[in-house]
Computed example of a mutant assay.
Amino acid sequence: MTLSRRTALFLLAFGVWSYLLWPTFIRNIWHSDRSWAGSSPTGYLIVHLVIAVVSLVLGTIIGVLGWRAYRASRSS
């Protein structure tokens, strides 16, 4: 399957966007009053951390696909 350069750049931008957005989200959730009950994490924290980690993994995969497609479009 061949992706256009425009699509490759979009996927690459999505991957970069994930790394700009989700670490800030994790930091904000970590410091939220709803994230901790004493010294133990709440369900709120766990669910949001899972969402953020999955999003970072998917962003990485999409970014890598975009990078590979962009490199392939440059050589053809």
Rank of each mutant, 00 (worst) to 15 (best):
T2P: 00
L3K: 04
L3N: 03
S4A: 05
R5W: 02
R6T: 11
R6K: 11
T7K: 08
A8H: 01
L9R: 07
L9M: 08
F10Y: 12
F10Q: 02
F10M: 15
L11N: 12
L12K: 02
L12C: 11
L12D: 01
L12W: 06
F14Y: 14
G15V: 11
G15I: 08
V16Q: 05
V16R: 05
S18T: 13
S18I: 08
S18V: 02
L20A: 07
L20V: 09
L20W: 10
W22G: 10
P23W: 04
P23I: 01
P23E: 00
T24D: 09
T24E: 06
F25Q: 12
F25M: 10
F25I: 10
I26D: 06
R27C: 11
R27Y: 07
N28F: 09
N28C: 10
N28P: 01
I29W: 03
W30T: 08
S32V: 02
D33L: 00
D33W: 01
D33C: 06
R34E: 13
S35Q: 02
S35W: 05
A37C: 07
A37E: 11
A37F: 07
A37Q: 11
G38W: 02
G38V: 00
G38T: 00
G38L: 03
S39M: 12
S40V: 11
S40R: 14
S40W: 06
S40T: 15
P41M: 15
P41L: 07
T42M: 01
T42S: 11
G43N: 14
L45H: 07
L45R: 02
V47K: 15
H48K: 15
H48V: 07
H48D: 13
L49F: 15
L49A: 12
V50K: 14
A52L: 07
V53M: 14
V54F: 10
V54Y: 03
S55Q: 06
S55K: 05
S55C: 11
S55M: 10
S55T: 09
L56N: 07
L56P: 08
V57Q: 09
V57W: 07
L58F: 01
L58R: 03
G59F: 02
T60Q: 05
T60I: 08
I61C: 02
I62P: 08
G63L: 06
G63A: 00
G63P: 00
V64P: 06
V64R: 12
V64A: 14
V64S: 06
V64N: 07
L65D: 10
L65H: 08
L65F: 07
L65R: 09
W67L: 15
R68G: 01
R68M: 04
Y70D: 00
R71I: 02
S73R: 06
S73C: 10
R74E: 08
S75H: 05
S75D: 13
S75N: 07
S76C: 03
S76D: 05
